[in-house]
Design a protein around this nucleic acid. Sequence first.
DNA 1: CGTATTTGACCCGCGC
DNA 2: GCGCGGGTCAAATACG
Length: 270
Amino acid sequence: MEPTCLDTSLNLNVDPSSVHTDMVLEEELQRLRRENKRLTEMLTHLCDSYMVLQKTQLTQLKNANFEQDQLESRKRKAENECCTNKFGVVNNNSGECSSITEDSFKRYKDFSSSPKVSKVLVKTEASNNSLYVMDGYQWRKYGQKVTRDNPSPRAYFRCSFAPSCPVKKKVQRSLEDPTILVTTYEGEHNHGNKRGEIEGGKGSSPVCSPTATIGSVTLDLVKSGLFETAQKSSIQQFLVQQMATSLTRDPNFTTALATAISGKILHAKW
DNA sequence: CGTATTTGACCCGCGC
DNA sequence: GCGCGGGTCAAATACG
C-alpha cells in the first residue's frame, strides 16, 4: 500500500486581523478531523481484513497439516504393521487399512488440543544483544539453552502476570539475521489486562522501549498464529500516537492552533 | 531481605 | 536399549 502523506502545513499567509482567519482555521480543523476519521476507519478496516485473512489461512493450514499427517501415517502403517491398529481392531479381510490409526488420532488429538502457538519476529538494534522482548506482558525467565540448529541461546519465559497463566514464550535470535528476535508464544493468557506497556513494569529491566519495539515488530503473515486483539489495539494506539506526534512537531500546525485559540479567547472577551 | 536471573543438572520424548 | 537434544527445575547469585 502506498504510504499516505498528510499535508499538515497550514496556510498562514492570512492577515491576522482579517475577519476570515477564524473561519479558515475552523475549516482547516474540520478538514483535519475528517481526514483523521477517514484514516481511523481505514485502519480499522485493514485490521479487520487482516484478522479474517489470518483465520481463514490458519484453518486451511490446520486442515492441510491434518490431511498430510493422515497420509503419512497411513503410509507408515501400511509399511510396518500391515493393517492392524493398536485399538485391537483388525481390519476387514480386504486388506484395507483403517483411516484412523491410533497414531494419527493421537497426532490429531494433540494438534487440536495443543495450545495456540504463534511466532512473532522482532527487529532489534544491532548493538542490543539481550533476549528481552517488550510485548506488554510480564515475563519471568526460567531457562536458557543453546540449541543445535542455532548458535545463539534460546531463552524460556513464563507469564508472571498471573500465577495460573499457562502462557510461555521462547526467544531466540534468527539464524539468518541476528538482529531479529524470533519469539514463539505458546498458549493463551487467562487474564485480562496487559501491563508494563506504558509503565514499564517492575522486573522488566533490560528491555526495548515499548514504542520502539512495537514500531519495529514484523509479523510473519504466513507462519504466525493468531494475531492478538491486544496487539491490534497496540498498533492502532501507536499509529494514533505517531500522527499526534507529527502534528505537534509541525511548527505551522502549532502556530496555527495557538493563533486560533488566542483568537477565540480574545473574541470571547470582546 | 525479597524477588528476579543465571546456569548446571535432570527429565523425557524421539529416532536409530 | 541407548544416545541426543529440547525443555524444565532449582540452587546459587545478583540486584534494588
